[in-house]
Simulated scan of single mutants.
Amino acid sequence: MKYFFCLILFFGLLFGCSKKEQTPTASLKPSFGNRNEVVLVIDDSLWVGSLGDSIRAHLAQTTAESTTTEPIFDLVQLDPSIFTTRAKTARNIVLFSIHTQHEFLLQKSVHATPQNFFFLRAKTKSDLLAMFKKRADSVISVFKASELNEETHEVVRTSTKELRELKEFFGCTLKIPDDYHLQVKSEFPFLWYQKDLSSGSVNLVLYEFPIAEIENNKGSVEEHLLQARNFIGKKFIKTAKDTAYITTNTKEYQFVSKENMLQMPAYRIVGSWETVNDYLKGPFISYAIRDEYYQRYLFVEGYVNNPLKNKRDQILEVEAIIKTINFNENGN
């Protein structure tokens, strides 16, 4: 789990932001803010116009991790005159100002902890706009990593059960919050955990396929990963209707990227699922981990079924659960 605690510092160094001497975190109050909330400290006159439009276009763009038109962040705009002591303890803050100095600065835990506090200062409005456009992706990356990190802490805090079936079936551990229950257990091997919502459910599933079935000359790895997902959906992930099951919605964009998990290659797939012979649909996130030791691809993925409700934060929760995976025999 050291990866999560180092991640935010890594992003700060990666994007080349200058830093100042920090207040010892032990003396700071805990930060506050809803998940994926960003406080923007900017003069009202700058918020209305090209700069405000650009900020909204970047920081409130539609997230890929949801089938609804949810923004990646919920924005709270404050004029500097009402940027109170309480507001200064928000977890994610960006301060824009017209200033004699030209500066892009990230400071950690300035008034509270944890906290990401960006300062953007420029001599003119046009310079400020150009600076933000150049640095927007960096700001987004830091905030997204921070929110995933905070959600992971919450997942670990609310996970107290030892789930022996995870080690028995897959030789791994996961931190799964106690409000998830085991829905289906099959010797395939396949495990399905579910969290009940007032209007639906959040679902976490695990299964595996041999590397030879995913990597061969009959198609691309990406095609075989989606075929594997659809096979599992048809075989195991049913709805209340007898003939209904989950499949990948290939009509909508599927985002596939590569990364490493525990020094193993992994494919991260984000997209939408739908049901054959039913009306249900929603977003999913899937990690397919290439495990050379067991000659398998281990799939760990989350589905959100929450009709007419926002799903962004629930997808974040299941991704945080997935990120706690550990293959150490001694656990986390």
Rank of each mutant, 00 (worst) to 15 (best):
P30S: 14
A212K: 14
L316D: 08
E259Y: 14
Q183R: 05
P307V: 03
K108F: 15
E21Q: 11
R157P: 04
S257E: 08
K88W: 08
P177T: 02
R268F: 06
H111C: 08
W273N: 01
E292C: 11
S54H: 04
Y303I: 01
V76L: 14
K323M: 14
L225H: 07
N330H: 08
K125S: 11
A90G: 12
K311Q: 10
M264V: 11
T324H: 10
Q61P: 03
S138W: 12
E37G: 10
F190G: 00
I214F: 04
V276T: 04
G331M: 14
I246D: 04
T248N: 05
W273I: 01
E317T: 01
S146M: 09
E37H: 11
A145P: 10
L316H: 06
L7Y: 05
D179F: 06
P177W: 00
S18I: 13
E65R: 03
S126M: 09
V205E: 01
A60I: 02
E168A: 13
Y287D: 00
E103N: 05
I42W: 09
W273Q: 01
P189H: 02
G200V: 01
S27M: 08
F104L: 13
V304I: 08
V184G: 00
A136S: 15
F73K: 03
T25W: 09
F5C: 13
K311L: 05
D242G: 02
S66V: 02
K20F: 08
S31N: 11
L225C: 05
D74F: 04
L129A: 10
E301Y: 00
M1A: 15
V142F: 10
L298F: 00
E103Q: 13
F327C: 02
A266P: 12
L191D: 01
E292W: 11
F73I: 03
M131E: 10
K218S: 09
V139Y: 12
L28P: 10
L197P: 01
T243K: 12
V270L: 03
N249R: 06
A57Y: 07
F73W: 04
A90Q: 07
S201E: 02
D74M: 04
V142A: 12
A228I: 02
N92S: 09
F104Q: 14
T239K: 00
S257K: 13
F143L: 07
F32L: 11
N34H: 12
M264Q: 15
S257I: 04
Q183T: 04
E70G: 06
N328M: 14
D44E: 13
K161N: 15
N149A: 15
E70D: 08
V256I: 15
N116C: 09
A64S: 08
D127E: 14
M131F: 14
G233M: 03
K175F: 10
L75M: 08
D79S: 14
R268A: 06
L148D: 07
S27I: 09
P30W: 07
E223H: 10
L206T: 00
K323V: 03
Y245I: 01
V256M: 07
K29C: 04
K218R: 14
E65M: 05
P71L: 05
E168G: 08
N328K: 15
T67A: 03
H224R: 14
C17H: 09
N230Q: 07
K144M: 13
D178S: 15
E259P: 09
A212I: 11
L95D: 05
D196T: 12
L95P: 00
G52E: 09
E223S: 09
N277M: 04
